[in-house]
Design a protein around this nucleic acid. Structure first.
Lengths: 132, 132
DNA sequence: CGCGATAACGACAATGATTGTCAAAAACGC
DNA sequence: GCGTTTTTGACAATCATTGTCGTTATCGCG
């Protein structure tokens, strides 16, 4: 159980989740995605959706956001590393990239001797549309 | 229901929670704080602790962190705005201040027309002690 | 100083997302 | 094709957090 048989199998359900994530825009909760799959006629268990999403998140193929609201939101986070600017009122999400922040975080962590560094950054505000 | 009776009352329990937060170091969960209060002999309900912490967080008097683990962690976030560098292995927390990030976040948000901006940033890594 | 309105408390139940369990089914290597 | 091993999925369990609602304490005012 050490090598060779790494064994990550290619299943119909896994493909379905990946395919769905490739199509939808923005963030969606696990339950949300599960519902969409059902609508499409794909028969996938909720537990499997959760597990698949976790796996994808571990593999770094998708992005996880934990809004104050409660549920985790997942999104296909293909290329590059970026953060999100979220409207408090309407939930609209804008992607932002910040090389500055990346390097700053890495530098600060390195100064303290930390290795294997990652970070989470979310910006909240009220978007123009929602400003009276 | 518009004004005059703003009414935020000063209760023993509220003082107890504030006092405790003023003394302890680092982050603690609501349940953790509740247990400490009990040890001190303060009789405060868990529900009240949750509500008080929420109120303090709304008022900006304390800081809330939501680690991947699950529970929310609260901390007296007195002066200045800072972020945290957390060790994945031992949980050790280092405070870091980043004027760069602050201004960057504000600027980016402003560029997109967002107002009333706030942000959340957490850096995770493995600290020197936990690095083999 | 005391009284009444009303906010806050608190014990308990409810909620609800996530995780664990485990037998059955599917996938891959040979 | 066949057996082994991963994966699936229905269901139950977990557990932090939130709602409920009668009771209690606080504060403003007479």
């Amino acid at each position: 159980m050490s090598e060779s048989g790494a064994a990550v199998r290619n299943t119909r359900q896994r493909s379905a989740v990946s395919a769905l994530l490739a199509e939808v825009e923005g963030f969606h909760s696990a339950q949300d995605l599960h519902a969409m799959l059902r609508d499409r006629g794909e028969r996938v268990g909720l537990t499997t959706v959760y597990r698949t999403l976790q796996g994808l998140a571990d593999a770094g193929e998708i992005d996880v956001m934990r809004p104050p609201g409660g549920e985790h939101l997942y999104r296909r986070c293909s290329e590059g590393h970026h953060h999100h600017l979220v409207c408090r009122a309407c939930g609209r999400t804008v992607e932002v990239a910040g090389p500055t922040v990346e390097s700053w975080a890495d530098r600060v962590a390195a100064q303290h001797g930390f290795t294997d560094v990652s970070h989470t950054l979310e910006i909240f505000g009220t978007c123009p549309t929602c400003t009276p």
